[in-house]
Computed example of a mutant assay.
Amino acid sequence: MNVAEAVATRRSVRAFLDTPVPLETIKRVLDQARMAPSGCNYQPWEAIVLTGAPLKALQDRLSVSERDDPPEYDFSAPSAIDPKYHARLSVLGRHLYGSMGSGRGEKDNREAFARANMVSFGAPVLLLCHFPKAMKEAQWSDTGMWLQTIMLLLRGEGLDSCAQEYMGVYGRSIKDHLGLSDGTLLFCGIAIGHRDPASPANNFERERVPLDENIRFEGF
């Protein structure tokens, strides 16, 4: 698989098979991802990767934990932005929940699906990304590029993923469970495994805006 194919076939997978993922594969991907862009060479990203009994123990902890109030950070979109961004979110919601036959008014079904984040949609591996709270916006950006590099490399290995900002909602519980200090920010998770090809949640059409809606070219 070349880079363009990896980009085109990467998607947020929300239903995984229980097929194990070898440690050697995860290590190979993370070793290659070390070369992701890093301003000032800070390499701010850190992670803990769980599978098997340790992953189950964390999921059991989350099932009885309260959401952080306030959360580690607010990953929701600001209210005072151009309505076009909210429209894009609505498109995603319509396709995602529509693929599963869940209408806007079916609150219980949607809440149950959201809580499936706690078990990473059945993925056998979970990477939990964290870094020191002292890091600023530039280092957050570097970490995002590292995470994207990981997800594309996973596609090259025939694997799938789902980036889970949702894990930040339980940041304090996760940090306490894993022995991370209060000076650490729990940024997100990445669910890793093989997609369930039969799940509607993995097969709805994804939409992106046309290139000229976001990009302007000059001097060509």
Rank of each mutant, 00 (worst) to 15 (best):
G189D: 09
A198Y: 04
F187M: 12
I174C: 00
C188F: 04
D182G: 13
L178T: 11
S199G: 01
L185C: 13
L186I: 05
A198V: 10
N202Q: 02
T184M: 09
I190K: 08
H194K: 14
A201K: 13
D182W: 02
T184S: 12
C188E: 05
G193M: 12
L180H: 02
L186R: 04
I190D: 08
G183W: 11
L185T: 11
L178Q: 08
L185I: 03
I192M: 05
C188G: 04
L186K: 06
I192T: 05
R195T: 03
N203C: 11
T184R: 09
G189A: 14
L178E: 13
R206Q: 08
P197L: 03
G193Y: 14
R195S: 01
R206Y: 02
A191M: 07
P197I: 01
G189T: 10
D176W: 12
N203V: 07
H194M: 14
A191E: 09
A198N: 05
D182H: 06
E205K: 10
A191C: 08
P197E: 05
G189R: 12
G183M: 15
A201D: 15
S199K: 01
F187R: 04
A191D: 01
L180V: 04
F204D: 05
I190Y: 05
I192W: 09
N203F: 04
I190A: 09
H177Q: 14
R206N: 10
P197Q: 04
E205A: 12
K175V: 01
G189E: 02
L180T: 09
G179N: 10
L186T: 08
S199F: 00
F204E: 00
F187W: 06
K175S: 12
N203H: 11
P200I: 00
F204I: 00
P197K: 00
H177R: 13
E205Y: 06
G193P: 15
I192F: 10
C188V: 06
P200A: 03
I190P: 07
G189Y: 05
E205H: 02
L178M: 14
G189M: 14
I190R: 04
H194P: 04
